[in-house]
Simulated scan of single mutants.
Amino acid sequence: MSEAPLPAIRSLPSWLLGRAAARGRALVAEALAAEDMRMWHHVVLSAVRDLAPVAQADLGRAVRLDPKDLVGVLDDLQGARLVVRAPDPKDRRKNAVSLTPRGARLLERCEKAARAANDELLAELSPAEREQLTGMLRRISGTAAG
C-alpha cells in the first residue's frame, strides 16, 4: 500500500491540528517533567504570576479548571512551597493565591523549557511561518493576542 490509510480523515484540518497539538503537548510535558512539573501545575503557576494576588475561584475561571481539580493542583504547589494561599485582601472570606520566590524561579525554568519544546515542534517552519501559524491559530481558536 503506497498511500497512508484514511486519506479523507488525514486531510482534515481538525485531524492535523489534533495531531500537532498532541505532539506539542508531549514535547512540553517531557520538558516540564525534567523540572519535576506537570502541565496543569505549570499553567496554574503562570496564571498566579500574571494575576496575583488572585482569588482561588477567579484563578479557576481564568485557567478553566474545575474547582476540585484546582484545589489538588494548588495543594501540590503549596506543598512544594511554590505558592501561598492567604486571606484575599479584597474579601477576607476568600483565599488569594500568590507565587513564592521559589515558585517564580521554577516558573522561569519551566517557561524556558516550554519555549525550547515549542521551538522543537516548529523547527520545520521559518520565523515568518511560525508567526503566521500562531496568528492563524489565535484566529480559529478565538484567542486574543497578548
Rank of each mutant, 00 (worst) to 15 (best):
A114C: 11
G79D: 03
P7L: 06
L12T: 13
A116H: 09
K90S: 13
E3R: 11
R138N: 07
G24M: 11
R102S: 12
R105H: 10
L51I: 13
W40Y: 13
D58Y: 00
R115N: 07
N95K: 08
A8W: 07
R92Y: 08
D75G: 11
E131S: 04
A52R: 15
M37N: 04
R92M: 03
R25V: 14
R93I: 06
P87L: 06
N118L: 15
V28N: 02
L122M: 10
L17K: 09
R85Q: 10
R23T: 13
R38D: 15
L27A: 03
A128S: 07
R138Q: 05
K112F: 08
G60N: 06
K112T: 12
P5N: 03
R139Y: 08
E3P: 08
Q132S: 15
L107T: 00
A116Y: 08
K112L: 12
A114W: 03
R19N: 10
A4C: 12
T143E: 09
A117H: 00
L45P: 06
Q56V: 14
L133N: 02
E30S: 12
D66V: 04
A86M: 07
E131W: 00
P53Q: 01
R25G: 10
A104D: 15
M1K: 13
L121P: 09
V71Q: 14
A117G: 04
V63H: 06
V71H: 14
L106P: 01
K90A: 15
L65G: 09
D69M: 15
P89S: 01
V84E: 12
L125H: 02
Q78Y: 05
A128D: 07
L122F: 04
L82K: 02
A22W: 10
L99A: 02
Q56D: 10
E129Q: 05
S126C: 02
R92T: 13
R38T: 09
L99V: 05
R92W: 12
P127E: 00
S2A: 13
L65D: 07
L59Y: 01
A52W: 06
A113M: 00
R138M: 04
P13T: 05
A128C: 01
A145I: 05
V44K: 02
A128H: 08
H41Y: 07
L32N: 01
R115H: 06
A31C: 01
K94Y: 07
R81A: 06
D66Q: 04
L16M: 11
M39D: 06
T143Y: 14
A117E: 02
